[in-house]
Amino acid sequence: MAKVLVVTSGKGGVGKTTSTAALGAALAQQGEKVVVVDFDVGLRNLDLIMGAERRVVFDLINVAQGVAKLSQALIRDKRLENLWLLPASQTRDKDALTDEGIRDIIAELRTRFDWVICDSPAGIERGATLAMRYADEAVIVTNPEVSSVRDADRIIGMLDSKTVKAEQGEQMKKHVLITRYDTSRASRGEMLNIDDILEILAVPLLGIIPESQDVLKASNVGSPVTLNDATSMPARAYMDAARRLSGETVTMVVPTEQRKGFMDRLFGRRAA
């Protein structure tokens, strides 16, 4: 049974695209057949994060409008043979996406993949509602910061009212993914901690992704974090999160920064 997952947040810049790429790659690395779908029409970026920006020929809207077949628009990852990308269009016409068009594409993707991961645009407009419309489960990405948590709460309300699942009276399964988490700052009371966020949002935790330079490094070279350096802290956190999505029970590790010694501090800048 294919699962359709939407990665959403409300607020922009919290790590939806990074998380879509990392979770998609992690699930593929674990043997699942995965497609990541970019719903950010007009401002596509998942192709860039996946390192496939020069291979885009057709896109989501071309398929929705019948200009191209799904198989023509799907881009196979060069590193993982069971990972695929369906890019967004760069057209400015957001109305080019229709509810029926998306419904049909999602239905077809369900027959071909184990996981369909929809990267939602920021905001609460049409693009965001269409990205979540046909999902079975949702990952709500949030930073430990007030505006991000507030927007996450708003999105949770929409997931529970504007999706097909909700309209059919079913419960949409939801997970919170906390990104850019800084354990030491949270422990000093300078940043909302995990318990604060979970208590406020009342949605179970999928994973804690630490604030890390490895995320930028991976995006610089166009590789999902989990593929770029599988041993890095964010990669391990995403790998664990992906296992939890598959139903495994994985102990939650609060990422702690390796304390840098004096010599590291002295030479760290040169080495990195």
Binding site: V146, R150, D153, G189, L192
Partner: peptide
């Protein structure tokens, strides 16, 4: 020493209780 996170938490709790009511 106390940090600003408790303030953030309290503000969010009050605000969201209100916004959820509206919803």
């Amino acid at each position: 020493r106390t940090g600003s996170a408790p303030v953030a938490r309290e503000r969010l709790q009050i605000l969201l209780a209100h916004e959820r009511g509206l919803r």
